[in-house]
């Protein structure tokens, strides 16, 4: 285990391989001051028979930039407050740990999505009103 991995990208690929080979759903690791989560990706809408499947490793690598906030249910995502319309977590915003970042509407009920840790919103991967499935990455958070 003395292998010297200097490039973070290299390290990520090694870990991604472990993720795939072990069939894991999620893998956390630290590099320097930052903590990363690798998550096996999702797949939707497979035409048959031309199904090839998105590579979960590639998708996990996409989420490498920071902490992925995922959907905890199936429903329609709302980035704005269902009452007032204010968007609590646009790109660039800083969110506290436990802060509301979005809502998922399931059978008419709006369930809050909260940030597992403090950070700034690097990227939003869903559009307002888009259907989402369980585990789908909604947004990516950078170190606070």
């Amino acid at each position: 285990m003395e292998k010297d991995i200097t490039r973070p990208e290299e390290e990520a690929r090694v870990l991604a391989r472990i993720l795939r080979e072990e069939g894991l759903a999620e893998l956390e690791f630290e590099a320097g001051q930052e903590r990363f989560v690798l998550r096996a990706g999702r797949r939707r809408e497979h035409p048959v028979p031309a199904w090839t499947g998105a590579d979960p490793v590639e998708e996990a690598l996409e989420a490498l930039e920071g902490l992925a906030i995922t959907s905890t249910r199936v429903g329609v995502v709302h980035l704005g407050d269902p009452q007032g319309g204010a968007v609590p977590a646009p790109v660039g915003a800083t969110v506290p740990q436990g802060g509301i970042v979005a809502w998922i509407e399931t059978m008419g009920v709006h369930q809050e999505v909260r940030s597992p840790q403090a950070g700034s919103v690097l990227e939003i991967l869903v559009a307002e009103g888009e259907p989402v499935e369980y585990g789908q990455v909604l947004m990516v958070l950078g170190g606070g």
Binding site: A40, H46, P47, W51, G53, Y134
Partner: peptide, 20 residues
């Protein structure tokens, strides 16, 4: 989540992950 690569998922026209 653990069934995401199952045959019935791959053969379906549309798929949804509904939980762990």
């Amino acid at each position: 989540e653990v069934d995401r690569d199952s045959l019935h998922v791959r053969l379906a026209d549309e798929t949804f992950c509904v939980g762990p």
